[in-house]
Write a protein that binds this DNA or RNA. Structure first.
Length: 475
DNA sequence: ATGTTC
């Protein structure tokens, strides 16, 4: 057995597991999570990532890990800027897919009597579902502006406030975006979709804070028991998908050109110093800016609707963070601080207290981390820790993580039964397509509280609060 | 995730 248990929640995948592994695998999980890992091929993928050139320390797997395109979802891998690589498969098809939480100044008792109308009004306002479009109309030059400026563009156009920006990662704008590396096809797909939620696991929830674990941090974040919040989970839509598709082809050519050998073609990549890497980074950051703008615009639309019902709602942004990104960040290795390229695919950046990238108001406690649960289950707010910074490149989990494939989930139950069950729990659900409801049944996912307990026990982030859904909008 | 198989 190549997996060595280090403590209750840490497992080391030995280099003997597979020929070509340059580093060990470090997996966070309890025994249930480790069992699931073996049966679905994720373990093999963790080992494959460990074979990539220039990988640093470990190939990491968070407790929500499961099989993905090339890299596992829930995987983290950092690469040296000197001899490392960048890979579209390590970011994922939905570039900068991520999540934000907005805080109302309303108690659940004020909102509950209006929840049906409120949810219906948001459902009408925010287009959702596969191929959804038409939230706002922009031309080619505005789209280029979005790709260059992210959420800053949205705020400039009145879709959001200046105060939002400091609570978005990278202040809402990735600086090395370069739209000239984004294909015409990607631009065409993205133009009509700005301000739309999309489909799959994307959602919009109205929630209530029903448990506080850390009073001090919760106070700093502005979280109170009974307070209503809004969570938005979506990404870069067809534009990001097309960028990934385009650059997988570029990287397959680059592998031949640079003589890179990988155990799985889906891990195709290019040296970080190459022109191909520069172009992917520019295109990926442009797609990420699209996603940041998208969440800012949707947030603004939700704010509009809430204010119509409740003039004092406010909807202050707690934080907006991506969980599908490669970032070039400073990390300490063997006592030396250096730039490294951290791929987080279905994993969340979680900066510790005092990190210079954090807005000043969060510096004393650390970065808010947002962990959505599966449909109808609780979500969590965590906070980044020093140990996470030192041990796993400031990373943590991103959600519940699938245990059933979309296809397998589709077979299990009809949508009406799922909706009825959620209704009995007092959760209002509105969806564009019933197929999505079946794909997203809670049984298709791990228990998010189990996942969060693992990262807390490991000390790579800490629980702050739990959010219970009142209403869910699905694509 | 995705104009859910250009």
């Amino acid at each position: 057995m190549a997996l060595k248990q280090l403590d209750h929640v840490r497992w080391l995948l030995d280099k003997d597991f597979k020929a070509g592994m340059r580093v060990t695998g470090l997996i966070y999980g309890d025994s249930y999570i480790i069992q699931n890992l073996e049966k679905e091929g994720a373990l093999e993928q963790i080992a494959n990532v460990a074979c990539l050139p220039g990988i640093l320390k470990h190939s990491y797997a968070m407790p929500d890990v499961h099989w993905g395109y090339g890299f596992p979802i829930g995987g983290v891998a950092a690469f040296s800027m000197d001899d490392g690589i960048i890979s579209p498969g390590g970011v994922g098809y939905d570039i900068s897919c991520g999540v934000r939480v907005m805080l109302t100044f309303l108690d659940q008792d004020e909102v509950k009597p209006h929840i049906d109308e409120l949810t219906a009004a948001i459902f009408t306002k925010v287009p959702c579902g596969v191929g959804s479009k038409g939230a706002i109309k922009i031309g080619e030059s505005d789209l280029l502006d979005v790709l260059a400026n992210g959420a800053l563009w949205a705020v400039k156009k009145g879709y959001g406030t200046k105060e939002d920006l400091e609570c978005i990662e990278e202040s809402g704008r990735l600086p090395h975006a370069n739209a000239s590396y984004v294909s015409k096809k990607a631009l065409e797909r993205g133009k009509p979709q700005l301000g739309t939620l999309g489909s799959g696991n994307h959602f919009l929830e109205i929630q209530v804070i029903d448990e506080i674990y850390d009073e001090n941090v919760a106070r700093r974040f502005g979280l109170n028991l009974g307070q209503v919040t809004v969570m938005i989970h979506c990404g870069s839509r067809g534009l990001g998908h097309q960028v990934c598709d385009d650059y997988i082809k570029v990287m397959l050519r680059a592998m031949t050109k640079y003589g890179i050998k990988v155990p799985d073609r889906q891990l195709c990549c290019a040296p970080l110093k190459s022109q191909e890497a520069r172009e992917y980074l520019g295109a990926m950051q442009a797609a990420a800016n699209y996603a940041l703008a998208n969440r800012e615009i949707i947030g603004h639309m939700v704010r509009d609707v809430f204010l119509r019902f409740f003039p004092k709602a406010e909807l202050k942004l707690l934080y907006d963070v991506s969980h599908n990104m490669a970032h070039i960040e400073k990390h300490e290795l063997d006592g030396v601080i250096m730039d490294v390229c951290v791929h987080r695919k279905g994993a969340t950046r979680a900066f510790p207290p005092d990190h210079p990238s954090l807005p000043e108001k969060y510096r004393p406690v650390g970065q808010p981390v947002i962990i959505p649960g599966s449909m109808g289950t609780e979500s969590y707010i965590l906070v980044g820790t020093k140990r996470g910074m030192e041990e796993c490149f400031a990373s943590t989990c991103h959600g519940a993580g699938r245990v059933l494939s979309r296809k397998a989930a589709m077979k299990s139950e009809d949508a009406d039964t799922v909706l009825k069950r959620l209704e009995q729990k007092g959760i209002k659900v509105m969806a564009d397509q019933m197929g999505t409801i079946r794909e997203e049944i809670p049984e298709a996912y791990k228990d998010v509280s189990r996942v969060v307990d693992v990262v807390e026990k490991a000390g790579i982030s800490r629980k702050v609060a739990r959010l219970r859904p009142l209403a869910v909008i699905k694509g």
